[in-house]
């Protein structure tokens, strides 16, 4: 089995929670799109964490793939009139190819230099999106496209779109878990724990790191495509390195060494932002402060705190 019984139970529990969430959200004064957003960021962060928590590589450039697929989805619907069933896979494929190419160029660089290079390449995408007015709508963003039907299923209403995203969300959880359970996943962790030992064992470290980079970026692409459809809008900030930073923030706050960590981080991020922003527009201050506290004192994130509570 690629999933243990425990995995199935845990993923099933999370799935059950998200299945009934649309009923709960309005009751606590929130709304269904908030739940959709948590799942979208969850897909982004869970995929991202294959790279960060899984194999120990920090990227500040995954927003490029997120935004690229977002724009691609919008453009394919708007200009080429592609149906969603083709537009979404095409956009994700675009993110995959971009990541394969950029990854091949930069994966040999280590640590800080790698992080800086991801920013550099990410910002190139950002500036292209914000400058190429005729294609992308420039700084105003890309509007005029709308999510409609996906294989006969009308995803225009908020609830329908929620369950549409829920499907992808569930697949993401299952895939990431299966990947980390597989020998590939174990190899990634081995590389994170000790690069030199992995090399001595004859593992082609760069190949595995490149693989992790591309897979994580593909999930960024999926999340970006869904996010553009959620908002019916794509804008340059989607590609900005600060958006990449949000994915980092979610992974760290939730716990980058725990499977559900990034998802918990995404939930905390969206909720905190929404709750705090009803009181003050300055939500970035408490969020930044919380992040600092986690980096300093709770490096295992929220789920790491629980782990300690269990006496593990």
């Amino acid at each position: 089995m690629i999933w243990s019984k425990k995995d199935i139970l845990r993923i099933g529990a999370v799935a059950a929670l998200f299945a009934v969430l649309p009923l709960l959200l309005p009751k606590i004064g929130s709304s269904i799109p908030v739940g959709t957003e948590i799942m979208v960021w969850g897909i982004f962060a869970m995929g991202f964490n294959i790279l960060l928590g899984g194999t120990g590589i920090l990227s500040f450039g995954h927003a490029a793939f997120f935004g690229l697929a977002g724009y691609a989805t919008g453009l394919l619907i708007l200009k080429d009139r592609l149906p969603l069933v083709l537009a979404i896979p095409a956009a994700v494929l675009g993110a995959f190819l971009a990541a394969a190419l950029i990854g091949a160029l930069i994966i040999r660089k280590r640590g800080i230099y790698f992080a800086m290079l991801t920013i550099a390449f990410g910002q190139m995408f950002y500036f292209i999106a914000s400058q190429w007015n005729s294609l992308t709508g420039g700084l105003d963003g890309l509007t005029g496209f709308k999510r409609t039907v996906f294989l006969g299923f009308d995803i225009t209403p908020e609830v329908n779109f929620y369950y549409f995203v829920f499907g992808f969300f569930l697949l993401t959880l299952l895939f990431v878990k299966a990947l980390m359970n597989s020998s590939i996943g174990k190899t990634l962790v081995a590389i994170r724990e000790n690069v030199h030992r992995a090399e001595f064992l004859g593992i082609d470290v760069k190949k595995y790191q490149h693989f992790a980079f591309v897979v994580s970026a593909t999930f960024s692409g999926l999340a970006g495509a869904l996010y553009a459809l959620l908002l019916n809008f794509a804008f340059p900030e989607l590609l900005h390195w600060k958006t990449s930073g949000d994915a980092v923030l979610m992974s760290v706050i939730g716990g980058m060494r725990a499977f559900f960590g990034p998802l918990v981080g995404a939930g905390i991020f969206v909720f905190l932002r929404d709750i705090i922003s009803t009181y003050t527009p300055h939500w970035a201050l408490p969020l930044g402060a919380i992040f600092v506290i986690f980096v300093l004192f709770f490096q295992k994130g929220v789920l790491g705190i629980f782990e300690r509570g269990n006496g593990k």
Binding site: L58, V248, V252, A284, P286, L287, G288, V292, V295
Partner: peptide, 25 residues
């Protein structure tokens, strides 16, 4: 964060920048 993985310094100051920019606002 001295002596730890350099990534922690980067993460710490990233959060710091986020919070301090809001202090200016």
């Amino acid at each position: 964060v001295y002596g730890k993985d350099p990534l922690y310094g980067l993460l710490l100051t990233f959060g710091l920048a986020m919070a301090l920019e809001e202090v200016i606002r």
